[in-house]
Amino acid sequence: MVLFSFLYITMSSSWNIIGGYGGFISIGHNVFFGIGAYFSGFIYARYGISPFYTAVFAGMIATFFGFGVGLITLRVKGPSFIISSIALLMIFRTLFDRWELVGGAHGITLPHNNLSVEWSKIPHYYALLVLMVLSILLSWYVRHSKFGLALRSISHDEIKSEVTGINIKIIKVTAYAISAYLIGAAGAIWGDYLTYVRPNIFFIILIAANMVLMCILGGKGTVTGPIIGTIVIIFFNEFILANFGASELNIFFTGLLMILTLLYFPDGIIGSLKKRKLLPGFLDWD
């Protein structure tokens, strides 16, 4: 569960860069998660180089893809962008389901590490901890940099931003690519943690839905929002699993929570508290 929190804080903080600050809602951001996992997993299975070394490159591959894809999909905004992000996910799902080199629908099975059982997950713990800290620092940096300012002005009004001389295309695409980096690296570590990489684990929309929900529940466009949102959702999921078991109901409740949040707390926890001036100072990093 702690690992899960680290993972999802990394992912939702990264998502927040393009989705929260930039206002481009992507419901397919886990393609980068999958790309990272497949890249490192493939190298591990074939050449025996551990994902802990290749995670850095997995992130770079994800960034590279993000850049290419961003150039195409970020030309549209609003509903078309959301649709294209879902389509992107479906393309990768279909592609990896059929791609025999990486095991098709069965995916890649990775060797276990040779640590004893109680120690075997410790490396993942530290690796994800590092990624999480990096993601929060990155989010904080973007929030307070000139780049982040430009990004937020784009989310307000693209045309006006363009008039003020911001190169909106570069800014958008860069933000998209940056947000892909840590997600890709996290994918590499997570694949090693699970010891297998499969399309139906990595390329499912529920992961993307969770990233979006965590940000919105916590408060999108804030630094601490995704962290708080992730923790709440993870406890919520545990609670549902413990009480109702079936994962179908998990989907149901995740959806329900999303609807209720959007209808009644569109600013999320952090945003709502801030509006009422109730936000404790140690949570206000904006």
């Binding site: 809602i25 959301i82 979006v212 999303m258 609807i259």
Partner: peptide, 10 residues
């Protein structure tokens, strides 16, 4: 859009 997304999940 996200509302309809949540509805779909429900």
């Amino acid at each position: 859009v996200l509302l309809t997304f949540g509805t779909a999940m429900v």
